[in-house]
Design a protein around this nucleic acid. Sequence first.
DNA 1: GGGAGCATGTAACGGGTTACATGATTGG
DNA 2: CCAATCATGTAACCCGTTACATGCTCCC
Lengths: 196, 196
Amino acid sequence: MPQQKSTKLSGTANAVLGLLSFGEELSGYDLKKWADHSLSLFFWSPASSQIYAELRRLEAPGYVTSRQVPQDDLRNKRVYRITDAGREQLITWLETEAIGSPVLKHPVLMRVWLGHLIESDRLREVIEEHRDRTAARLEDLHRDLDIVAARENWAYPELIIRWSERYYEAERDNAEQLLRELDAVERAPASNGASI
Amino acid sequence: MPQQKSTKLSGTANAVLGLLSFGEELSGYDLKKWADHSLSLFFWSPASSQIYAELRRLEAPGYVTSRQVPQDDLRNKRVYRITDAGREQLITWLETEAIGSPVLKHPVLMRVWLGHLIESDRLREVIEEHRDRTAARLEDLHRDLDIVAARENWAYPELIIRWSERYYEAERDNAEQLLRELDAVERAPASNGASI
DNA sequence: GGGAGCATGTAACGGGTTACATGATTGG
DNA sequence: CCAATCATGTAACCCGTTACATGCTCCC
């Protein structure tokens, strides 16, 4: 086994390893979809092209193994499985990697922040859309919960989904509250000079 | 004025322009600190080196102007001010740039997700630390609110801080709830096989 | 005297995205 | 038959970080 000096893996590489750490054999394609539903809740969902790249990067030092799956059709499909070395690498990463503070990139709030440059009806519209998308996402999430809860050994992912439900509820409520406060600001005695 | 074809600005460049859109003359150094307190709430805080780079990139097409400020000492300080063209650019960006969904990068949740690879006491510790840091951050934020509320024309940034307060409160409560659910999971009839 | 903060950068690097390419199968 | 989905990648590019360099001044 080619156990060369581990050239430090990126966060994304470890995230992919994490996806595989639940024990299933998955293809790059599977991983992408899987990532869209789980990873995206607290990390982000890497582009498919990167997932394939990471898989190759993980296979070289032996953190994953792959095999070609014979399909009934002519398509070729390659599935990956985590190795003991891979699991160990992931554990070490979790232990040693510094835990930074959460980072939020929120395009809607960016617009609110720059509210003095946006027509106020448009701003309200953006927030309302966000609130509605959040509510919709919440329903999807609830469906995911049922799926995950049915599985054995998925207690921790279930906690993530429960957490995310609370998170999205708060997001929805915060948007609602924001709309109320926006009303107050805009009917206030012209304190915001540059406002449109 | 060198109004060349605008080579599309990055999100960060527009964020810096946003910081300047409140009308003050600011140095790169100021902008960095300013960003740490406001931008970081809903975007992220760029490295200082990048702020300086963006400023140069913004000055070339005339979105900002700068002037050297004579100090009493020998240090040289350059302050930047947004131009009309800059304000227009920012407005256009806000109107045309697609509003993506929020992205959250949350190292603590990543650990929860991979709870089956972490010693359970350690996991609990990580969450508790996160809860406490969040609570501390909440107090800082409350101080920022007073500062911003005292200013004229800062109604929108004030909304952001209010939103962030609610956000951090939810984060703190979610962490607390997570700890309770973690108890339940770990005293449960061994459903999580690979657990340590 | 020395450390913290002020102030501005450069160079190298890597990580990740977008856009594109290819081709097969399934379902309406 | 056409769109959607399955499935895997390559190449170009940019964005942003890290690490470093420089030198001042204020305050203990």
